[in-house]
Design a protein around this nucleic acid. Structure first.
Length: 270
DNA sequence: CGTACCACCTGTCGGC
DNA sequence: TGCCGACAGGTGGTAC
């Protein structure tokens, strides 16, 4: 499901219900999601107080004293805080019960998500190689320009590489490239410093805006309070293949890059 | 190291 | 109406 704005929206939605609460118990209805759920989740979490809910890239970290539960929502995962007596439905794989009587429930039909354990003071291997946060000062046009020299991969693929910058998935990559006026198939190494400055600014603006609007509504995503996000109606190229460009009127084109559907405007993006 | 491709899994949608 | 294939927001692993 989610790109960074959806994950951040989830974090903001669940954090007030979790921080400061004690974990009353953990219910695992499946032994694994994308990977086996490690024994620490069951063995160490019960009785611990939740100290903070953080986000790194598209991972959520539920901090406790001995370590953090690491959650990735994959393509179809949802985390919600529900009344404790809510009966589980299909694909409700994990419950973390709270001393408030409520329950943090992880639902994920496709099971591309994961629930892992990161001991206090350590960095999980999956987080070790990640690039900078897109909304941080470390991410800017100069960074993209320097890192991209010699790269032949399409700029869209480059931008979606989580080792380059985290949190930019298929939707927001397409939208950012449209705003920056860059054709998605252009080789990353052939793009000028000035154009990368525009691209970095577009990524920051679009992700920041999407977060303030509560993420993009897609069929698998509801924000944690059950309300849909409101960003979908503002998408300018993603999902608009064949429709007229809102700027120049040309038909939005569709191609495939790195196996992913790619929408772009041949008039506005060069 | 960089790049391309496959895999994981379920639900939904369009076409016949 | 029913069936079947294609596709979906992610990303680790592998093979070149």
């Amino acid at each position: 499901m989610p790109e960074l704005p959806e994950v951040e929206t989830t974090r903001r939605g669940i954090a007030p219900h979790l921080e400061g609460r004690k974990i009353a118990g953990v219910t695992l209805r499946r032994p694994d999601l994308r990977w086996p759920i490690p024994p620490e989740i069951r063995r160490l979490l019960p009785g611990q107080r939740l100290l903070a809910v953080r986000r790194r890239a598209k991972y959520l970290l539920l901090d406790t004293e001995p370590g953090a539960a690491l959650v990735h929502l994959g393509m179809s995962g949802v985390l919600r805080v529900l009344p404790g007596r809510t009966p589980p439905a299909a694909h409700d794989h994990v419950d973390i019960r709270l001393d408030s009587g409520r329950v943090l429930r992880f639902t994920d039909p496709r099971r591309f998500g994961c629930l892992l354990w990161q001991p206090a003071g350590e960095t999980h291997e999956l987080l070790a190689g990640l690039g900078p946060e897109p909304l941080s000062d470390a991410f800017d046009g100069d960074y993209l320009f320097e890192l991209s020299r010699g790269r032949k991969a399409p700029v869209k693929t480059f931008l979606m590489d989580q080792a380059v910058v985290v949190g930019v998935g298929n939707i927001y990559a397409a939208e950012s490239l449209f705003e920056a006026g860059i054709a998605p198939h252009r080789a990353a190494g052939s793009i000028s410093r000035e154009r990368y400055a525009r691209l970095a600014a577009a990524v920051k603006r679009i992700l920041g805006h999407a977060i303030t609007r509560g993420g993009t509504t897609l069929r698998d995503f509801l924000s944690p309070d059950g309300l849909p996000g409101y960003f979908e109606q503002e998408l300018r190229v993603y999902g608009r293949e064949g429709e007229p460009c809102l700027v120049c009127g040309r038909k939005i084109r569709e191609s495939r890059l790195g196996g992913r559907a790619t929408a772009w405007c041949g008039g506005c993006q060069r």
